[in-house]
Computed example of a mutant assay.
Amino acid sequence: MIFLVNLLWFICGGFLAWLGWMLAGAALAITVVGLPWAFAAFRIAPFAAWPFGRTLVDARVVGEGRIVGTGLANVLWIIFAGFWLTLAHIVAGVSLCLTIIGIPFGLAHFKLAEVSWAPLGKRIVDR
């Protein structure tokens, strides 16, 4: 069932979400300053394409250490991009939740809103 919902998501917009995160990562990777956010964008792209059955957790939950400066980098991300990405995902999620058939896709947008707020230090795990 999760595969079918993921497939529908991918066809109806997940591909564009994946492409957006990949292009953002490529644009950030061109600049040396943007490399931390580029790695985060490349890590989030597969989650944006196939969000069902997986979740994002803090890296410390899976046993990884926190990189010094992650909090400051997330604050800069929130100021320059995170607020607007989160707002867009929340608006899309609420719009989709207004229809019965769109509720699962709306919930996926809420998951993407959460990671769009502060993507550094997150890891994708299967449920």
Rank of each mutant, 00 (worst) to 15 (best):
V125S: 05
V125Q: 03
I44P: 00
L98C: 09
I124M: 06
L76I: 09
F110C: 08
A45L: 01
T99S: 14
G63S: 12
V125F: 02
E64L: 14
A41C: 07
I44L: 06
I103T: 06
A29C: 08
A81V: 07
I90D: 14
L107F: 05
F10I: 02
L87K: 13
W9V: 03
A29Y: 11
A118Y: 08
L19K: 13
G93L: 13
L98S: 05
D58T: 10
F110S: 10
V5R: 14
G102R: 11
A17E: 15
G13T: 05
L7P: 00
V5G: 03
G121Q: 11
W21M: 08
F3G: 08
V91L: 15
A29K: 06
A88W: 06
M22K: 12
G71C: 04
G53T: 11
G25V: 01
C97K: 07
G93R: 13
A38I: 04
V94N: 05
R66K: 05
G20T: 15
A73L: 13
I44N: 04
W18F: 07
V94S: 06
R60G: 02
I79D: 00
G121W: 04
V115L: 01
I124D: 01
L87M: 14
F10G: 04
F10S: 05
W50K: 04
D58E: 15
A38C: 11
I90M: 15
G69Q: 10
G63T: 10
F10V: 02
A48C: 06
L98T: 04
F10A: 11
N74S: 10
L96H: 08
V62W: 02
F39R: 14
F3H: 12
W84K: 13
T31K: 08
G13A: 04
P36L: 08
F47P: 09
L35H: 03
V32I: 15
L56W: 01
R66A: 01
L16K: 09
V57M: 09
R60Q: 11
I101S: 08
C97H: 12
L56P: 00
V61K: 13
H89K: 05
R66W: 00
A59T: 03
E64K: 12
H109S: 12
I90K: 14
F105W: 13
P51M: 15
A38M: 07
F39T: 10
A81E: 07
G102P: 08
A108C: 01
I67F: 06
L19T: 09
A41E: 07
K111E: 15
P46A: 12
S95F: 08
V62I: 15
